[in-house]
């Protein structure tokens, strides 16, 4: 039987995603830029940009979001690094199953998790709105912790054990070997983890909204502009966030060039 020759190249496989990119990424970006730099009459303007940086309210939200994200990232890192370290050192046949315990919460419905957290926090604190900053950090930490553990766990697990032996052989104590070898070599994982926690924590408003109906965070700020039909101001804030995320991503990539240590596949 003669072979049927189908004019099919590998490039064709990219078409569905290219269409998706065009419709849902490129086009909205163009619209975003358009709205960000125009006013209500459709004229080009920088007013939205200057408006953002001169309004103490928006600036305050930016700083607040930044602080929440920073604190949540720091707390995540403090919890995740030792956890990941000990997990990777476990002498167990199947470490992945232990790791699953830490990932399992991710498989439970998001709103269910936050609602549960809300109930627990209410039991402890009473009125959640009285401790907004702490609750914001707790909520974000709870939500994003696995994203910090996984990449760190992956990098430490992949570390060549003979490097540690070499350090010990050359006169380093256990702790010296950790600080001079393990810690620096696990930095790519730490950077990955920081990026995967910090950036979402900057913009995720659902957690706060569900915890105590707060809109005092970047993500919800945009929402509130849109709700007031101020497409132009909202677009500008979205653009500024995009710029911040872009800068951080570039910084992070420089730090973790050596290897891809993201643990996203497990999620």
């Amino acid at each position: 039987m003669p072979m049927l020759k189908i004019p099919f190249t590998r490039k064709a496989l990219a078409i569905p995603y290219a269409v998706f990119l065009l419709l849902f990424v490129a086009a909205p970006l163009v619209v975003l830029f358009y709205y960000a730099f125009t006013n209500g009459k459709g004229q080009f303007t920088f007013d939205n940009l200057t408006g953002f940086f001169s309004d103490p309210n928006t600036l305050g939200t930016l700083l607040y979001s930044f602080a929440v994200a920073l604190a949540a990232t720091a707390v995540c890192l403090l919890i995740a690094y030792p956890t990941a370290y000990f997990l990777s050192k476990l002498h167990l046949g199947n470490k992945t199953s232990v790791l699953l315990i830490f990932i399992l919460p991710m498989w439970i419905n998001f709103s269910l998790r936050i609602t549960a957290l809300k109930e627990i926090l209410t039991m402890i604190e009473g009125n959640l709105a009285d401790f907004q900053f702490i609750n914001a950090v707790i909520g974000m930490t709870y939500d994003f912790l696995p994203f910090m553990i996984l990449p760190i766990f992956n990098t430490i697990s992949k570390l060549d054990g003979s490097l540690l032996e070499a350090a010990r052989d050359l006169g380093a104590t256990r702790s010296q070997a950790f600080f001079r070898v393990t810690l620096p070599l696990s930095m790519p994982g730490v950077i990955s983890g920081v990026m995967m926690v910090f950036l979402p924590a900057m913009t995720n408003y659902v957690v706060l909204d569900m915890l105590y109906n707060s809109t005092y965070i970047m993500g919800s700020l945009i929402g509130s502009y849109f709700a007031a039909y101020n497409w132009h101001g909202g677009s500008m804030i979205a653009l500024i966030l995009l710029a911040i995320i872009g800068i951080f991503t570039l910084l992070g990539q420089n730090g973790s060039e050596q290897e891809d240590s993201r643990g996203g596949a497990l999620l």
Binding site: D160, S162, L163, E165, A166, A167, D169, L170, L185
Partner: peptide, 11 residues
């Protein structure tokens, strides 16, 4: 001191 099989140089 040891010379390791796969060198174990600190990358």
């Amino acid at each position: 001191n040891t010379v390791f099989q796969r060198y174990a140089l600190f990358p």
